[in-house]
Design a protein around this nucleic acid. Sequence first.
DNA 1: TCGCTCATGTAAATAGTTACATGATTCC
DNA 2: GGAATCATGTAACTATTTACATGAGCGA
Lengths: 185, 185
Amino acid sequence: MSQRGGTTLLEHALLGLLYEKPSSGYDLRKIFATTSMGSFSDSPGAIYPALRRLERKGFVQSRAQAGSGRRRQVVSLTDQGTAELRNWIAQPVTQQEIMSELREFMLRFALSESVGGPAVSVELLSGLKQELKAVLSSLRDQQKALKPYLPLSGSLALESGVRGHEGLLEWCEHALAAYESAADR
Amino acid sequence: MSQRGGTTLLEHALLGLLYEKPSSGYDLRKIFATTSMGSFSDSPGAIYPALRRLERKGFVQSRAQAGSGRRRQVVSLTDQGTAELRNWIAQPVTQQEIMSELREFMLRFALSESVGGPAVSVELLSGLKQELKAVLSSLRDQQKALKPYLPLSGSLALESGVRGHEGLLEWCEHALAAYESAADR
DNA sequence: TCGCTCATGTAAATAGTTACATGATTCC
DNA sequence: GGAATCATGTAACTATTTACATGAGCGA
């Protein structure tokens, strides 16, 4: 189930949220449930096991909240967990990642600034830009080659893919510009 | 594992390919491996079991290719399989489907014209358009609400989502126009 | 004959899904 | 006291992944 070295996308999302602040499993579930965060699962059967996996790996530690009211297990990042998060975010962008809908990229990028600073964000963006160009040109080749054999709906579907990536490239340049002008100030 | 009624996205993709022409598991694998078809798995451990599931459900039947050379198990759609495909394609578009990256929508749409005719394609497009507008406005609300609390990379990531959906809306109108002008001729 | 590609499959492991279980606490 | 919600978890099931196994035909 796509564990590139043993840590899931969901697990990285959890690490990212815990980086902001220590939380309980229930808190995390609610974040996924309400904010449509890249559409992760908010089911307890996904989150609680994932948290325990992270604990087993030494990336988080959980302790019962002292004293007050309800039973609550607060989970927080360890140094090792922070390191893992930092490392995962700074990974170079691959074409495969772009083809498989780039949920992973967007999560990494969204976290990059808080966790690694703007230089990491910019690095990711320029990596994306480069790989995107390659993907786009091969996508356009495929489109040209297949067009005559497809029904209108088929070639329109392909076109939506190409347009999507073109739009992404524009966004990428926009984002780079935003970082540049932020640096000027 | 997201089986809305028992049939996977991969399984539907296989049905779609078999609708075009009967093929062996190996053929299908190669299609996934070479054409980056929405990025489905080309692993035998995914495809052969999926084909057997489809057979169990009565959607396909497989027979050894007669005579010649290499061993080859050719799989073809049954009437029941065609019905399932047709039915799945014509399902209304949901917001949830849009949020979860619309791989499913695009597959349905790509197949819609061959399997159901242009009217079905147009129906899907106008369904998408309508739901997209709803999704977009709630997305923009969320963006506005969260912006002040996020680092630049976070709000840029959100913006990429919004832009992506805006681009999709444009594509949607473009596609509708294409069908209109095709109907005129 | 040696190696490559064709072609089909199995096995173990894992993550995620749905659904259920269980208590404690707050609100009325 | 009763209902809703907080909060954590488990159990059964399924699809997919990686990796391996096997054998047949093809080209040099």
